[in-house]
Design a protein around this nucleic acid. Structure first.
Lengths: 207, 207
DNA sequence: AATTTCAGCGTACAACTGTACGCTAAAATA
DNA sequence: TATTTTAGCGTACAGTTGTACGCTGAAATT
């Protein structure tokens, strides 16, 4: 029942995914990857690729899913840290940057394919980011008493800035990264302050 | 002195540039362009390409320059309209969206290659956007009396949001585009309000 | 033990890529 | 008018790509 066979298949499937992630870099985006190269790095013949994915496209979507998973882990970790009592903006930004460092290539995929060339990809990435925004919006609404609609716009703006800075950070050295992080924090504070001023519920928090 | 020869050369050179721009679309980014296809659309033999550019890369950088030019025209027009007395945020956003509609493919190039695969490209695009940010920062500093450093961060955040919305707008239909534009305006207002609160010069405007 | 399933392989091919090389005709220069 | 320059062409080639097809051996099923 262990399935020696299925087990091995899963293993090379993962090898393909990892090979593909490995080949992502600052100067190599997903759409430049070739089926043959990925197969080569995974240690299988080009034609064996089709035993696992119909397409490079299908591989890509799987990769987006995996990156989305990482994104959700990121969110959970940030929430946990905030609950333990850290400044929201500080710990969120810090957590995000940590993840970027650890899982560069997963973020590279999300950040690049967000405005990439394949509609299916863009949709998949958009879906993942939407989660992110909704979650943040919900938090903002309950925590600061901002009107639902404004909470959503605020969250969207914040996520945009965070991702944009993330994209920059990806290809920078730590020293410049720190500076960039500081700037980002200020910018998020602008938004938090500005939005809180613009539209509040009657009371800052629910009964 | 007219230079019948040089004139013709300039003409096909421009034809190459336009052919390349034409082949940019939502599902076709610069790095997927092929020298041969561009030459074909421009109506010359593949090998003749080299009479004009050393490389596809060199073509690309020329295209970025051209798009940068358009960006500057955009800025001038926005300034003109604001001087004529329109709300800053409203007319800026409106002007930007107008340009995106008119010169979709130039913006597509800037927006995509900003986080694209070629370092040279990224640098070139970054340079163009830096102009944009500096100009806006200067405006914010003199007009709202915000501290220099904060003015720059504020400008950066605003430009990030504008470009991000622009990228989304590029592949949307007018009705959704309008909604997106409204959201963007709110987000810019958040920043304006928030930043003005955070750090002001002693006096709102210079002596 | 006999049969079926299937992950992975090797061969093969047509399509496409960038680009080296040498020619030509017309414009520019002398 | 004689000479030089050069934009554009055609041919040619080696490299890479995706993928169709049929085989094999070992795991799974009967």
């Amino acid at each position: 029942m262990a399935g020696v066979r299925a087990q091995q298949k899963q293993k090379t499937r993962q090898a393909l995914i990892e090979a593909a992630f490995n080949q992502l870099s600052a100067e190599h985006s997903f759409s430049n990857l070739s089926l043959r190269e990925v197969a080569r790095e995974a240690g299988i013949a080009p034609t064996s690729f089709y035993r696992h994915f119909k397409d490079m496209n299908e591989l890509g979507l799987t990769m987006v899913d995996e990156a989305g998973l990482t994104l959700r882990q990121l969110m959970r970790q940030a929430r946990r840290r905030i609950a333990k009592g850290g400044s929201v903006i500080n710990t969120s930004v810090h957590t995000f940057m940590e993840f970027i460092e650890q899982s560069s290539n997963q973020f590279r995929l999300l950040l690049r394919e967000r405005s990439g060339t394949s509609p299916a990809f863009r949709a998949a990435v958009a879906r993942e980011i939407k989660h992110f925004i909704l979650e943040l919006a919900h938090y903002l609404e309950t925590e600061t008493g901002v009107d639902t609609h404004h909470a959503h716009m605020q969250a969207e703006a914040m996520v945009t800035l965070v991702f944009s800075s993330g994209a920059e950070a990806l290809d920078q050295e730590p020293p410049q990264r720190a500076e960039l992080t500081e700037r980002l924090k200020w910018q998020l504070r602008y938004i938090a302050k500005g939005a809180s001023g613009y539209a509040k519920h009657p009371e800052p928090i629910k009964k």
